[in-house]
């Protein structure tokens, strides 16, 4: 066990299992300090995919906290986390949702999806919705149709504050790799074990339970249909 050679080879094995056989590994870093909550990404995403009324692939939640005059307002942009261990993929009975070998993006084949909604339960982030026109489940796919042409995803392209940084982390010179190397980052709901590929800088985790615990006033606003964070 203590033999350093074994340790190294183990690490090598792990690395192989997780990453290196994928030519690309797309990831996003969201610097919430630079987000002004303008919802431009929400709108860009909705128009890019003609997302039906009441649904969203990506949105910005706002967390209003504090008692006057000591108040704050933080933003938390949300999108599919493109997890390394996506629980939506392992429950799909038809294989319609899958993790792409070439870049790690979790995609859905809407021709195969039967709309059983199992994956909507399995996703701990509530990122999936049933598309009322196709009858299939839909979600963010890092704008695959744009990214494959070398164009940034719609939300990244439109972000005024450069809060969303997207790229390939297998390329050490990419902006996203450098962000990951130099910043303290976190992921959402790490206890779910899904290993998200969307990383946050300074994400505010305040919610009702935090308010109860600390006595600080907190209001979380989300533009989802049920008006509640899921």
């Amino acid at each position: 066990m203590k033999d350093p050679a074994t340790q190294v080879s183990r690490r090598g094995l792990m690395k192989n299992l997780i990453a290196s056989d994928r030519p690309k590994r797309y990831a996003m870093v969201i610097d919430t300090r630079r987000c002004i909550g303008c919802q431009a990404c929400t709108v860009a995403c909705k128009s890019e995919f003609s997302v039906p009324l009441g649904e969203s692939r990506s949105w910005v939640e706002s967390i209003e906290k504090g008692n006057f005059p000591d108040v704050g307002r933080n933003f938390l942009p949300r999108l599919c986390n493109q997890c390394e261990k996506p629980s939506c993929v392992s429950v799909c009975p038809t294989g319609a949702t899958y993790k792409r070998d070439e870049d790690g993006v979790v995609a859905i084949d809407e021709e195969i999806c039967i709309g059983c909604k199992y994956c909507m339960h399995a996703c701990p982030y509530g990122m999936r919705y049933l598309h009322p026109n196709t009858g299939s489940v839909d979600k963010c796919d890092f704008c695959l149709h744009r990214v494959e042409q070398g164009v940034a995803p719609a939300c990244v392209n439109t972000c005024q504050g450069y809060a969303r940084i997207f790229g390939d982390i297998n390329d050490p010179s990419s902006a996203v790799s450098k962000m990951l190397e130099t910043n303290a980052v976190s992921v959402l709901r790490p206890a779910m074990g899904t290993e998200p590929m969307v990383f946050y800088i300074a994400a505010d985790s305040s919610d009702e339970r935090y308010a109860e615990r600390t006595g600080v006033y907190v209001r979380v606003e989300t533009n989802r249909r049920q008006q509640k964070r899921v």
């Binding site: 799909c92 009975p93 038809t94 294989g95 319609a96 195969i112 999806c113 039967i114 709309g115 059983c116 909604k117 049933l130 598309h131 009322p132 026109n133 196709t134 009858g135 299939s136 489940v137």
Partner: peptide
Amino acid sequence: ELGSFAVGDMFRWINLFLTIN
């Protein structure tokens, strides 16, 4: 309860039986 059935695609559920995982 199937989304595909709700949009009028009566038999897309057959996809369940074209694979096993």
